[in-house]
Nucleic acid binder design. Structure first.
Length: 194
DNA sequence: TACGTGATCACG
DNA sequence: GTGATCACGTAA
């Protein structure tokens, strides 16, 4: 079943980032739903330097400062769309970057969008999965209870022992906050980014 | 290991 | 207005 706002509005971004593992991200952008199981996430909060929200509200990050339960989508390195899930209440700027999925429905469609012939390459990274799902900045701020993008609980349980946490990727500029173990992934899953 | 790519932000 | 920087992916 589709997760509702009470899941996203809680005040603990790292707990939510762990709980998202094993949930199903579904996108229905061009009249065909495609989906994948979330296997890798990263938590970001305004209290640490790794986050876009650290220096306060700007045009780009303003949805992080709004109510949780919406998407934060931005362009990275001029090329890649990044999909994040905003959590917590108004003016508690937190978000979770979805870094990798295990493909479920619509694999043909996702391979076509990605223009690759290996299923391993379609959603095994944050820029890849948005391309596979058809997600871009037009969806910035969209509700995750909408009929375009949402997250489902299909009863898959990931035990605490099956979760690995490490420092986050690509945020060396954050100084000691780059060491926070706020990246989470399903141990041994083949689609975790490298 | 290098670099494309363009929005964004902190300057002025 | 301008320039440095960037929550990546790919080829090499």
């Amino acid at each position: 079943m589709k997760l509702n706002n009470s899941f996203y509005l809680r005040n603990n971004v790292t707990v939510i980032a762990r709980q998202l593992l094993g949930k199903i991200l579904v996108a229905n952008i061009e009249d065909q739903a495609v989906s994948g199981m979330i296997v890798e996430t990263e938590a970001y909060s305004e209290i640490e330097k790794g986050s876009h929200a650290y220096k306060g509200k700007t045009k780009r990050n303003e949805v992080m400062f709004g109510l949780g339960g919406v998407a934060y989508v931005y362009l990275c390195y001029g090329v890649h769309e990044m999909f994040n899930i905003v959590t917590n209440g108004v003016n508690k700027a937190e978000a979770i970057l979805v870094r990798a999925l295990q493909p479920m429905e619509g694999i043909d469609r996702m391979m076509k969008r990605r223009q690759v012939n290996s299923v391993k390459k379609i959603t095994s990274g944050p820029g890849k999965l948005t391309q596979a799902l058809g997600i871009d900045r037009n969806l910035n701020g969209i509700s995750l209870t909408s009929d375009k993008v949402w997250i489902e609980d299909r009863g898959i349980i990931i035990k605490s022992k099956g979760i690995v946490s490490t420092p986050r990727i690509g945020i060396d500029y954050a100084g000691k906050d780059a060491l926070l173990p706020w990246r989470f992934f399903i141990k041994g899953n083949e689609w975790v980014s490298k």
